[in-house]
Amino acid sequence: MLDFHIYDVFTDTPFTGNPLAIVEGADDLSTAQMQTIARQFNLSETIFIQTPDDPAHTAKVRIFFPTAEIPFAGHPTIGCALHLAESSAQVVLEEVAGLVPVTILDGTAEFTAPKIPRAQEATPDPATMAAALGLPPADLAPTAIGHFEGGPSFLYVELATLDALSRCRISEPAYTDVMRASGGTGAIYAYLPTGPNAIQGRMFDPPAGITEDPATGSATALLAGQLNAVGGLPATGTTAFALRQGVEMGRPSNLRLTIDTAEGEIEAVRVAGQAVKIASGQIRIP
Rank of each mutant, 00 (worst) to 15 (best):
L2G: 07
D3T: 14
I6H: 15
D12P: 04
T13R: 14
F15P: 03
F15S: 03
G17M: 05
A21C: 04
E24Y: 03
G25D: 12
A26Y: 04
D27L: 11
D28W: 06
S30Y: 13
T31F: 04
L43H: 12
S44G: 13
I47H: 05
F48E: 08
T51Y: 11
T51F: 14
A59W: 05
T67C: 06
I70T: 09
I70Q: 07
A73R: 11
A73V: 10
G74S: 02
G74I: 00
P76E: 06
I78W: 00
I78H: 05
I78G: 08
H83R: 08
L84I: 08
A85M: 11
S87D: 13
S88M: 01
Q90D: 15
Q90F: 03
L93W: 01
E95T: 10
A97K: 13
V100R: 08
T103W: 06
L105M: 03
A109F: 03
A109H: 05
F111C: 05
Q120K: 11
A122M: 14
P124S: 14
T128N: 11
G134P: 06
L140P: 10
L140W: 11
P142T: 02
T143P: 04
I145M: 13
H147S: 14
E149L: 15
G150V: 00
F154P: 00
F154V: 04
F154R: 07
E158L: 06
L159D: 07
A160C: 08
A160G: 12
L162G: 09
A164F: 10
R169Y: 02
S171D: 10
P173V: 13
T176R: 12
V178E: 10
G184F: 04
G184R: 14
T185Y: 01
I188M: 03
P193R: 07
T194P: 02
A198Q: 11
I199Y: 00
D205V: 07
T211Y: 12
A221T: 09
L222D: 00
Q226G: 02
G232V: 02
A235N: 15
R244T: 04
R244E: 13
N254W: 01
N254S: 10
R256W: 00
R256C: 02
E263C: 01
I266Y: 06
A268P: 05
A272L: 13
G273R: 00
V276E: 11
I278V: 15
G281Q: 06
G281L: 02
R284N: 07
